[in-house]
């Protein structure tokens, strides 16, 4: 029996959270689930939870505030709020990649519709337009020409909320029908998979098929560097290859889903995560 209590923070129990709970049980770790929807945060110095918090909350907003609140009262969080904020915003991720020299497709960040159109012209067509917040490939668009870019960005400008004025415009990478997901735990790459799809968006959530992928030294280094750039933790790094085989990091996911990766690797991913979490406080 471990002396550490682990609090799994989640409002939705997916296959990943169930696997993590089973891994905690398997190691005899005291644990419970904290649903952020039930949390009433009173700023105080009393610990909100007793133990290390594994943040698996599906909502970026709830994950950020919960992690911040727990940290303010002395709790260890994985991932911590800074990492969550950095990964949850593609503009901040792009800035972190640049600061740490991580290879990534050319990315321009704009704060208005006209600037975004100008950025598309600057990048050249086809260009990829991404909202700074969002996941599972939602609202990510490849625009083939200026007319399409102008139309799409005009639509984006009508969406409620100032966040929609912030846009990432990125070089489109002509990839070989797949990208790569690497799971980083702590500072270590643990496993990787290809995600194959007929569609240029190769998100597992959009139906991409997982396939085993060898963690070559180059892939491991790039993924580790990308994870370190945002602060390290339990992270899913998305990597794309161009047709010349050059590897580039696309983004880092703080609430990484790993059921697809688990289906193509013998590594017990949930147990590796739990081992890392326990190692932070033991």
């Amino acid at each position: 029996m471990s002396d550490v209590d682990v609090v799994l923070v989640a409002s939705r129990i997916r296959a990943e959270e169930r696997a993590l709970l089973e891994a905690l049980r398997g190691r005899g770790v005291r644990h419970h689930v904290l649903d952020p929807r039930e949390l009433i945060i009173e700023p105080t110095q009393s610990p909100i939870v007793d133990g290390v918090a594994l943040i698996r909350e599906i909502s970026l907003t709830s994950a950020r505030y919960t992690a911040r609140a727990l940290e303010a009262t002395g709790s260890v969080t994985v991932n911590n709020s800074s990492v969550i904020e950095m990964c949850g915003d593609k503009a901040l991720t792009a800035l972190a990649f640049a600061r740490h020299g991580v290879a990534t497709p050319r990315t321009l960040v704009t704060l208005s519709e006209p600037a975004a159109v100008q950025a598309c012209d600057e990048i050249g067509y086809p260009a990829v337009i991404k909202p700074v917040v969002g996941s599972w490939g939602r609202l990510v668009a490849r625009v083939p020409d200026q007319e399409t870019a102008t139309n799409l960005l005009e639509h984006r400008s009508q969406l409620p909320g100032p966040q929609h004025r912030v846009t990432c415009v990125q070089d489109w990478v002509d990839k070989p029908g797949r990208d790569i997901r690497v799971l980083i735990v702590g500072d270590q790459p643990v496993a990787a998979m290809y995600r194959r799809s007929e569609h240029w968006r190769t998100n597992a959530a959009l139906g991409a098929e997982p396939a085993p992928c060898r963690l070559t030294p180059d892939l491991a280094k790039l993924a580790t560097d990308a994870a370190r750039a945002v602060g390290s933790g339990v992270l899913g790094v998305d990597v794309v290859e161009d047709n010349d085989g050059r590897l580039m990091a696309l983004e880092v996911n703080h609430g990484t889903e790993f059921r697809a990766l688990q289906s193509v690797t013998d590594v017990d991913l949930a147990d590796a995560i739990v081992e890392h979490v326990l190692g932070l406080v033991e």
């Binding site: 599906i58 909502s59 969002g134 996941s135 996911n253 889903e257």
Partner: peptide
Amino acid sequence: RAPEVEEDWGE
């Protein structure tokens, strides 16, 4: 009924 997927949901 499960909550609808929100804009900030994801990985």
